[in-house]
Design a protein around this nucleic acid. Structure first.
Ligand SMILES: [Mn+2]
Ligand SMILES: [Mn+2]
Ligand SMILES: [Zn+2]
Ligand SMILES: [Zn+2]
Lengths: 145, 145
DNA sequence: ATCCTAATCAAGACTTTGTCTAAGTCAATA
DNA sequence: TATTGACTTAGACAAAGTCTTGATTAGGAT
């Protein structure tokens, strides 16, 4: 049983109606190779399998998956949001300031612990995200030349 | 001599032509009370002083200030970018997941140090930003009721 | 197997945020 | 004061996302 049937199983368990559209969106996210897709990229890949799928449905489905905690949403560059199927293992992101490519990174320790009690100002803390920025080896070679 | 005339001084030193439009944008950012404004909010406040200022000029001026390192740009919610005149002292942000309000916070230690050498994958690291999320006391009172 | 209906979907108008272009204006220097 | 290239304006344009409305359908009931 692969991760996708796991996902579809969980969703059905939560009362989701399983439609062809939702299935292809889940398949695209779960296909493994290209993490951190934009909504439009997800739509493009989904439409390759199910040509009539609409943009609105992709946005709706992604939003639902985010609400259910099955997918993470983040914005690395202030442009289109990215959707990350790797919601089970806490991780942070390293973004190339040249080409915009995004890698998962794993940091030492709990980032939430970096905020002293005195700084949290009575907020009920829910989470923290870290975005590291730098030039990837490819961009370094091109720009550093 | 206040922080604003400091800023205008530095900009003139860098060959900036000092126009009424640039002056009011700098004044708005430097007015102190409302940090983390959006470009449209900056435009609104600038237009209160100089009614004919255009949106394009506000965007251009903010972009120039960011390039010069005088203002920080970040996106807390994937919607409009925020402009932060507090570029001199490193700090992070705490965003209320209820009302979207943004506070500066200061963390213990250097966040860049949290990324092990083995994880940086040959990137030339340039920086890191942390965004803490939680419910502010007001939103806690309203939602927790 | 067929029916029923609330949940879901498609199409496209609309909104928000930001960029670009062309023509007019002006700050700084001579 | 005259000059001129940097600057500004207005609005067209673009990208990303939301919302409305009518049509379709998954899944339970019969
Ligand atoms: Mn990731
Ligand atoms: Mn700040
Ligand atoms: Zn790169
Ligand atoms: Zn709040």
């Amino acid at each position: 049983m692969n991760a996708m049937s796991d996902l579809l199983e969980r969703l059905r368990g939560r009362g989701w109606r399983l439609t062809a559209q939702r299935r292809v969106v889940a398949e695209v996210l779960d296909s493994g190779e290209h993490v951190h897709l934009t909504a439009d990229e997800v739509h493009g890949r989904a439409a390759a399998r199910l040509p009539e799928i609409s943009r609105a449905t992709v946005y709706n489905t992604l939003g639902e998956l985010v609400s259910l905690g099955e997918v993470l949403e983040f914005s690395a560059d202030g442009r289109a949001k990215r959707y990350d199927p790797n919601a089970r293992h806490a991780h942070q992101h390293l973004v190339c300031s040249g080409c915009g490519s995004i890698r998962d990174v794993h940091i030492a320790g709990d980032p939430m612990g970096a905020l002293p009690e005195s700084e949290s100002a009575g907020y009920a803390l829910e989470g923290v995200e870290m975005t590291f920025r730098g030039l990837c080896p490819d961009c370094r070679a091109k720009r550093g030349a």
